[in-house]
Computed example of a mutant assay.
Amino acid sequence: MAYRFENKVVVVTGGTTGIGLATAKAFADEGASVFITGRRQEALDAAVKAIGGKVTGVRADMSKLADLDRLYDAVQQQHSAIDVVFANAGGGEFAPLGAITEDHYEKTFDTNVKGVLFTVQKALPLLRDGASVVLTASTVSISGTPALSVYSASKAAVRSFARNWILDLKDRGIRVNAVSPGVTDTPGVDDLFGGGTDAENTKAYLAGLIPAGRIGQPSEIARAVLFLSSQEASFVNGVELFVDGGQVQI
């Protein structure tokens, strides 16, 4: 059986849960050697076990440049080049205008913007010519959401990175695309919505606003990332691929 990512080296940041975990597993199932990051060792170990295949976990916080250096040092110990970077690590919290703190702003932008920027920049010496970079943006970057302005702005920056970096990297043939998930059934979304019954009720309400009639699953986002990373998308460059059940298309 032929695998799309046989003998390919893939880096997935934020790979211990949700979309990152599902995508790392999808790459591993397709034959790739996968490196994942996470901030908690216990979660990292559990993710490595769940993914199986050729996977290596590196404990790292993507907002810290020294941790990024350690990630790419770990890759270099085993491989000479990287074929795919999925810059996925990120997060956000609710804070309405008037209650936004400096800490809230810095935490969000350090992870979602600074982290993505330097995840990709520090990968450049290892990225193979013709490689693929996929960034995790979000539907909230183009649709207003109460109390989520800082997170939304950070994801708009991520989408802008893709548009600009394809020009910076055109001579190397490196493609950069963004995937923008809608509401997806992940632990992070549950935490954002307060967990338990509150989270379930919120997800049910939001499902009613989505033309597909439900929220997304991490595996569905993963399939979109693998498409953007593959040769099947060889002429797809700089796009924002919405995987949202049609939510922001109406």
Rank of each mutant, 00 (worst) to 15 (best):
L169D: 08
A162Q: 04
F161Q: 01
S149I: 15
Q121Y: 07
R159I: 02
D129K: 08
V134M: 06
V134W: 11
A147R: 00
V150T: 07
A153H: 00
L127M: 02
A137L: 12
L135Q: 07
L169K: 02
N164H: 14
A153G: 14
N164V: 13
L148R: 13
A131E: 08
S149Y: 11
P125Q: 11
S138A: 03
T145N: 02
Q121M: 12
R159E: 13
V158A: 02
S160H: 07
L135M: 09
S154Y: 00
V150Y: 12
P125R: 02
T136M: 03
V150M: 01
S143T: 04
R159P: 04
V158R: 02
A156P: 12
L126P: 00
S154D: 10
L126Y: 02
S154T: 08
L148N: 04
L124R: 01
K170F: 06
V134T: 07
I142C: 09
P125I: 10
R163L: 15
A147Y: 09
I142D: 12
A157P: 07
A123R: 01
K155S: 13
K122H: 11
P125G: 12
A137W: 04
V133W: 08
K122L: 03
D129V: 13
S149H: 13
K122Q: 06
T139Y: 09
R163I: 14
L167C: 13
P146W: 10
S143Y: 10
S154H: 06
A137H: 15
I166T: 09
V134L: 10
R159N: 09
L167H: 09
A153T: 03
R163A: 15
S149A: 15
I166P: 03
L148K: 14
D129P: 15
V158N: 00
S143R: 05
D129S: 13
V158Q: 02
A162L: 06
I166S: 05
V158P: 06
S132C: 00
Y151D: 03
W165T: 09
A157M: 05
L124T: 09
Y151W: 14
V158L: 00
K155Q: 15
D168E: 15
W165I: 00
L148W: 06
V120S: 09
I166A: 03
S152A: 12
S141V: 04
A162E: 03
T136P: 12
A137V: 14
S149G: 05
D129M: 00
L127S: 06
V150P: 10
L127A: 07
L124F: 03
A137R: 04
A147N: 08
L135P: 11
L169W: 11
L124D: 01
V150F: 00
Y151N: 10
G144F: 01
T139F: 12
L169N: 14
P146N: 10
D168P: 08
L127K: 03
G130K: 10
S160T: 14
R159S: 13
D129L: 09
N164L: 11
V134E: 05
I142K: 08
Q121S: 06
S160C: 11
A131K: 01
L127E: 05
T136H: 01
L127Q: 08
V150K: 04
S141L: 05
T139A: 05
S143I: 01
S143M: 13
V134R: 09
K170D: 10
K122T: 07
G144D: 11
W165Q: 00
A137D: 05
